[in-house]
Simulated assay, not measured.
Amino acid sequence: MLYAILCYNDENAVSTWTKEEDDACMARLGEVQDGLRSVGKLGPVVRLQNTTEAKTLRKANGEHVVFDGPFAETKEQFLGFYVADVDTIDEAVDFAKKLSVANPGPGAYEIRPLRIYLPSALPDTVAV
């Protein structure tokens, strides 16, 4: 089963890291990713750009309204995600725990099962 592991953190804190701090964090995360990648169970890994670069499209009274940034009142922002092809949610939670150890600071990881709507777009190796 495919699970999304959604990464949340304070982008203001993360964006103040030096290049060396960011590179070190990405190296630690890479080591965790290698575990699932080596057994062919890691799908896309995406790091989103800051919310200052984003737009939000909402419908209001049947009309489209575009806002700058994500329109959310929160201290943490959605920063990226992993797709893991694991057998149980417990496996996905274990992977998220390892990611949280590799990533400094508080933050959060949301683990959600995925429902595939376009299976023809997936590689043959992914179980749906």
Rank of each mutant, 00 (worst) to 15 (best):
V65I: 15
Y117T: 11
T52V: 06
P123H: 05
D94V: 08
T74S: 15
L122T: 07
D94M: 09
D68M: 05
A92M: 08
A96Q: 00
A60E: 13
I116V: 15
N12F: 03
I111M: 01
N103L: 08
K97W: 10
T88C: 05
D90K: 13
D34H: 14
T52G: 11
I89C: 01
Q77I: 00
A54P: 02
N61D: 15
R115C: 01
E21T: 10
R112G: 03
F78L: 15
L118M: 02
A4V: 02
M26F: 11
V126P: 00
L114R: 01
A13K: 10
T125F: 13
V46D: 00
A121E: 12
Y109E: 08
H64L: 14
Y3N: 04
A108P: 00
V14Y: 08
D94E: 15
L42H: 00
L99E: 08
F71M: 09
G62V: 03
G43T: 10
I5L: 12
E31N: 09
L42A: 02
E20R: 12
P113E: 09
T125V: 13
V101L: 15
G105R: 10
V66S: 04
D124L: 13
G69S: 06
L36G: 00
Y82M: 02
F67L: 14
D23N: 09
L29S: 00
F71N: 04
G105I: 05
A60N: 06
K41E: 10
P104W: 12
G62P: 10
L114H: 00
D85A: 14
A102W: 09
K75C: 03
A54G: 05
L48F: 14
H64R: 07
P119G: 12
V128R: 11
V14W: 13
A84V: 15
G43E: 06
A127S: 11
F71S: 07
G80N: 07
L48K: 00
P106C: 09
Y8C: 06
R47G: 13
P70W: 05
S38I: 07
